[in-house]
């Protein structure tokens, strides 16, 4: 779910822009300069992937994929998500223009956490990597929902009900996303394991002290 214009208080919207810009700068710094075009292209594929709908009973949900982006891009994930959300807002109005910073934080921060966590947990066996995939798939959605709830609640007590509902609505998405991420990690570990080992665009993957 993307936040539209007019929901957040202006101070929060502006603050999120500033914070988002700082994290984008960090993410760009962590991406090897030559790899920026690659990350841009990868962003296009994530954009297409996020348009995929999965049926859920009588309705359908679309994937949020913060976990998957984090796994595949590592520290560059925030940059990719910021670019992707800019395009989604410009093309489809998915996410308001003034809420762009907030939406980038909502999806990008979970992606950074998931990427870091996946690298720490994936181990050397496929089963373990698949389990780590399921965990970060669910965690990505949970964190995104949590940040969404907090941002909505920043509008005052009137928004508490909406924030709670938004959190609850993400529970089924969490389950689906955990399954899809786990299956996808399994698929990639058979087909192209190097995608899981070294995130695209992070020539400095070996650097220590990543704050996510």
């Amino acid at each position: 779910m993307h936040i539209s214009d007019g929901v957040l208080p202006t101070q929060v919207a502006v603050g999120c822009y500033v914070l988002g810009a700082v994290v984008v700068a960090w993410s760009t710094y962590r991406t090897r300069g030559d790899d920026l075009p690659k990350v841009a292209l990868a962003t296009a594929s994530f954009f297409v992937a996020s348009l995929v709908h999965v049926p859920l009973g009588p309705t359908s949900v679309h994937l949020l994929i913060p976990g998957i982006v984090g796994v595949l891009l590592g520290p560059s994930a925030f940059l990719a998500i910021a670019v992707g959300l800019t395009l989604q807002s410009m093309l489809f109005q998915f996410g308001g223009l003034t809420a762009l910073g907030a939406n980038a934080l909502m999806m990008g921060i979970p992606a950074l956490v998931c990427g870091r966590l996946f690298q720490a947990l994936r181990g050397s066996s496929r089963q373990r990597a698949v389990a780590a995939g399921a965990l970060v798939g669910a965690l990505g959605v949970a964190l995104a929902a949590l940040i969404l709830g907090l941002l909505l609640y920043s509008g005052g007590e009137d928004f508490l009900g909406v924030a709670q509902l938004a959190l609850a609505a993400h529970l089924p998405v969490m389950v689906i996303e955990a399954a899809v991420t786990a299956f996808m990690v399994g698929f990639l570990s058979r087909v192209k394991p190097e995608l899981l080992e070294l995130p695209l665009g992070s020539g400095r993957q070996d650097a220590l002290g990543v704050k996510a």
Binding site: S45, V52, P55, L72, V180, F187, L195
Partner: peptide, 18 residues
């Protein structure tokens, strides 16, 4: 099965894109 297939589809999309 659907989730498995969608995951394979996405995985393949990423392999080809990357």
């Amino acid at each position: 099965r659907t989730l498995q297939t969608v995951a394979n589809f996405l995985g393949m999309l990423f392999v080809r894109s990357f």
